[in-house]
């Protein structure tokens, strides 16, 4: 498994994912992982849960393109992206990005690059359940600015 993308409703285990990235992988000395979780507040409002929608087909394709771009820039080994969809509670894991490389710089940079582009290119939408009712999240300009830095 050099690249793997999974869009799923079920939770994932960080330990299992790291084990898969490391299994029979003797050439990579670095494993960098990122996990995103549901927060209990956003923009001053208490949040009690999250619903995640996506565009099946386009989601996978957009993530494959991001992986291809990352592989063109850095010397990286294995990449695993997991993104959950459906109903999620506070504290639950939403997203996982794991990258291996021979040396740490490549995996660090590629992991951040993948997350930055996932945020602005992959067709996922979050609807928050807040104290004021259900609310679709608006795009953050800081996310766009962050992605633009890579060009």
């Amino acid at each position: 498994m050099n690249n793997s993308i999974s869009i799923q409703t079920k939770d994932f285990s960080l330990a299992d994912e790291v084990a898969l990235l490391e299994q029979d992988n003797e050439i990579d000395g670095a494993v960098v992982t990122f996990t995103g979780r549901v927060r209990n507040q956003n923009e001053g409002l208490k949040v009690s849960g999250l619903f995640l929608e996506h565009y099946p087909g386009m989601t996978e394709l957009s993530l494959e393109k991001i992986i291809t771009s990352a592989k063109e820039r850095w010397n990286i080994g294995r990449i695993k992206i997991i993104h959950r969809v459906g109903q999620l509670k506070i504290g639950e894991q939403i997203v996982f990005v794991g990258v291996t490389s021979k040396h740490r710089q490549d995996a660090f940079a590629a992991n951040e690059f993948i997350m930055d582009f996932l945020k602005v290119k992959a067709p996922f939408w979050k609807k928050e359940l807040t104290e004021e009712g259900e609310k679709w999240l608006g795009a953050r300009s800081t996310d766009n600015d962050k992605a633009k830095q890579w060009c």
Binding site: H54, A122, P123, L137
Partner: peptide, 10 residues
Amino acid sequence: VAFFPPVTGG
């Protein structure tokens, strides 16, 4: 063809 608001995953 798909139309949608700005994406907010991650």
